[in-house]
C-alpha cells in the first residue's frame, strides 16, 4: 500500500483497521472513521489520514479538506487537558479576555498551542451555553464559572498535581 507502519504503531493501526472494516461498506462514513481514528491516535497525523484515504479510496486532498474544515479534528498532538475559554458574548463582556490572558501568562503558550510537557492545550470557543456562569472555561469535561484572573493558577495547579501524583493516570482521577 506504500505506507510504512513502524513497529510501535502497529497496535493502533490494527484498531483503526477494525474501525474501517466496520464502516467502509457504508457511504458517508468518513467523518465517523476520522472521529474514531482520533480517539485511537489522540490526533490525526499525516500518516493516519493517508492510511484512511488509501483504505477508503478517497483522495487524500478530500480527507485533509474535511480534517481542516472541522475544528473537532486535530492535526497536532493535543495536551492531556484541553482548556476551552468561552468567548461568547456574555463571557466576552464579563472579562473572558482577561481570563484568557491569565492562562496564557501562566502556561506561556498562545491560543491553539500545547504546552511543552503536553499537559495543556489552550483554545477559545464560542458560547457553550453557560452564560449564567460567565466568564466560563472548561477543562476537558469540567466547567469552571464566574472566574477572575486570580482564580486561574489554583485551578491549573490542581491538574498539574493530579498528573504528577499518578504516573500512569487513570481516567477516573482526571475528573477531580
Amino acid at each position: 500500500m506504500g505506507i510504512r507502519i513502524e513497529k510501535h504503531e502497529e497496535e493502533n493501526f490494527k484498531k483503526l483497521d477494525q474501525v474501517i472494516e466496520k464502516y467502509k461498506e457504508e457511504e458517508g462514513m468518513l467523518i465517523r472513521i476520522l472521529q474514531k481514528a482520533q480517539d485511537i491516535f489522540g490526533y490525526l497525523p499525516m500518516k493516519v489520514q493517508s492510511y484512511i484515504s488509501e483504505r477508503l479510496d478517497i483522495p487524500i486532498s478530500t480527507v485533509n479538506g474535511i480534517v481542516t474544515f472541522y475544528s473537532l479534528f486535530y492535526q497536532e498532538p493535543q495536551g492531556k487537558y484541553t482548556i476551552s475559554v468561552c468567548t461568547g458574548t456574555a463571557c466576552y463582556v464579563k472579562g473572558a479576555h482577561e481570563v484568557l490572558d491569565a492562562i496564557k501568562d501562566e502556561l506561556q503558550i498562545k491560543e491553539g498551542e500545547t504546552t511543552m510537557d503536553k499537559l495543556f492545550t489552550l483554545k477559545t470557543t464560542r458560547c457553550i451555553g453557560a452564560c449564567g456562569l460567565a466568564p466560563v472555561i472548561t477543562i476537558n469535561d469540567d466547567v469552571y464559572g464566574r472566574l477572575t484572573p486570580a482564580d486561574i493558577p489554583s485551578i491549573l495547579y490542581k491538574y498539574i498535581k493530579t498528573h504528577k501524583k499518578a504516573h500512569v493516570p487513570e481516567k477516573e482521577e482526571v475528573k477531580n
Partner: peptide, 27 residues
Amino acid sequence: CYVYSPINRGFDTLIAPAFQKDLSEVS
C-alpha cells in the same frame, strides 16, 4: 489527480494540496 481541495474554512480557506504541501510532494 485530486491534487487540490479547500483547506481550512471561512476566511482562512485555501485551495491547496493536502496538508498545504508543495505540488512536488503530492501526487
